[in-house]
Design a protein around this nucleic acid. Structure first.
Length: 197
DNA sequence: AGCCCGATGTCCT
DNA sequence: GGACATCGGGCTA
């Protein structure tokens, strides 16, 4: 497990973590031992108490958002629109409620053959494809035997594209903050367009 | 290629 | 009771 990302990876500036997660491998070991994994191709940063789009805006701390206030490297999984889950990883130092939403994966292990390259092209689809649910909230990705992230591909800065945020309405100007990152021209990006497409 | 809408449960006011 | 860090289908063009 020497490729697993250590706590120090997550305990950094949230935007850096969001960019550096591109190319890393999300792994879920299921109860039956089957491995599901994929490479991260799209992320989005949520900048805590100062970010109008974040669940933790204004320091809001509830049962739902509790994981965001926890140690860096925790998962934060929430339920949305009555039928989807979304997976985040908690960043920055404990008590600072920042996180990175994992928005899309390139499927690698455990997917049906022939694999749909867009099976995890979006935060809701990703959790459905990876069998990630509310049970996976607040897991420690640094030590968990169920869910973790590994180093995989190294991504050059020029391969990273930035885009506006998604699905957060017109709250303030936060929509326009370029906090969404993706691998240029990758087929597994979510359907939310980047300006450079 | 784009807009609109329904599905469907939970959270917060 | 309204909004929601979504998705896919059906519509218009």
């Amino acid at each position: 497990m020497k490729r697993r990302l250590p706590k120090e990876f997550y305990a950094r500036d949230t935007i850096e973590v969001a960019r550096d997660l591109l190319g890393c491998r999300l792994v879920h070991r299921m109860p039956d031992g089957r491995r599901l994994s994929g490479r991260i191709v799209e992320t989005e940063a949520y900048l805590g108490a100062d970010d109008p789009a974040a669940h933790s805006f204004g320091g809001r701390r509830t049962a739902r958002t509790e994981a965001m206030f926890g140690k860096p490297g925790l998962s934060y999984v929430y339920f949305i629109y009555g039928m989807y889950f979304c997976l985040n990883v908690v960043t920055a130092e404990e008590g600072i409620p920042e996180a990175v939403l994992i928005r899309a994966l390139d499927p690698v292990e455990g997917f049906r053959q022939p694999t749909d390259p867009r099976a995890a092209a979006g935060p809701g689809k990703l959790c459905r494809a990876m069998h990630i649910t509310r049970e996976h909230n607040a897991l420690d990705l640094v030590t968990s035997q169920t869910l973790w992230i590994e180093r995989d591909q190294i991504i050059a800065a020029h391969e990273i594209i930035e885009g506006p945020r998604v699905g957060i309405g017109d709250r303030h100007d936060a929509v326009h903050w370029p906090l969404r990152y993706g691998l240029a021209a990758h087929p597994a990006l979510s359907s939310a367009k980047f300006p450079t497409d």
